[in-house]
Simulated assay, not measured.
Amino acid sequence: MFFSVVIPTYNRLPILQKCLRALENQQFSDRESDESHYRHIQGYEVVVVDDGSTDDTLAWLAQERQQLPHVRWLVQEHQGPAAARNLGVKEAQGDTIIFIDSDLVVTETFLSCHAQALQEGEEKLGSDRLFTYGAVINTCNFDEPTSEPYKITDFSAAYFATGNVAIARHWLEEAGLFDTQFQLYGWEDLELGVRLKNLGLKLIKCPQAVGYHWHPPFSLEQIPPMIDQEIQRGRMGVLFYQKHPTWNVRMMIQMTWIHRILWGVLSLGGRLNERTMAPFLQWLIDRGKPQLALEAARIFLNWYNVQGVYAAYSATRG
């Protein structure tokens, strides 16, 4: 088993540095070298795909080449994460692909835990028609991201999300890789997940393979780009639905009467928005509760998403 860790990145140099250094510190226990029970890990590489960064990412990678022996990098014009991941897979040397994001910091046993879960899953199923899905813990602690405890808000019911997943390369190729029509924010990984599910792949949870997803503490300045992301996610959600017109996809992209009523009621028909809620959100932030402020902001962020998805859907039918 040879791992290729594929990481798309775009203007995230400070946290990318932590991400890559953590991947250089991987440890493999004696159990993984016991071939009577576990497939031997032959090695790993880290494939960074720079998606047109303008923050000196490439200069830093070249400068740190000696300290990052597992890392090699590819460059493309800014086309989005779907195209970046496809390039990474096509140029990867491994038989097993691990996708993480460039703002994820992993533990020292990250790769060995995925390897063990893959092997045990194959033995149980009698085939490699599976992938492993590790845990993602959100944190805004930049200095010590791995000190963050698991929270109920870290739970994810997604089938296939590229924040922390390991899969045999040939299944990605058989499914057709990521659809590069998804050039805006959202859904390119879950759409590929639908195609993988149609091939019969089973999700194997691997909570021991932990990644800490860093993001800056929530502030009011982040709200405009977050609203834009929700509108983009609505547009890409309609593309997702056009490819897979099922009730499950409608539920995922929030294009149902349930979501329209839920977020309409909670936002008072849009009256609770970034302007009217700003004083309350700032009050929470000033009291050291930025995460709670972010959860409160999701009231109007989800309303923007629902509005965006219905507007995009109407445009396709007009």
Rank of each mutant, 00 (worst) to 15 (best):
M1L: 10
F3R: 04
V6N: 07
I7E: 03
R12M: 08
L23W: 01
E24M: 12
Q27R: 15
E35K: 14
E45A: 10
E45W: 11
L61V: 11
E64R: 08
R65T: 13
H70M: 12
W73V: 07
H78L: 06
H78R: 15
G80H: 02
A83G: 03
A84R: 06
N86G: 08
E91L: 12
E91W: 13
I98A: 07
S102V: 05
T107N: 02
Q116Y: 09
L118T: 05
E120N: 04
G121F: 09
K124Q: 12
S127E: 00
A135E: 13
E148I: 00
Y159W: 04
N164Q: 04
V165Y: 11
V165F: 06
A166I: 03
E173K: 13
E173A: 07
E173S: 02
Q181N: 12
D189V: 04
D189M: 08
G193C: 06
L199Q: 14
L203D: 12
L203P: 06
F218A: 06
I223R: 04
P225F: 05
D228G: 08
R233T: 10
R233V: 04
L239H: 10
K243N: 15
P245A: 02
T246K: 05
T246Q: 09
Q254K: 15
I258A: 15
H259D: 14
L266A: 11
S267V: 00
S267T: 08
G269I: 04
R271G: 10
P279L: 09
L284M: 14
L284T: 05
R287Q: 09
L292W: 10
F300H: 10
N302T: 09
N305H: 15
Q307F: 11
Y310R: 10
A312Q: 07
R317Q: 13
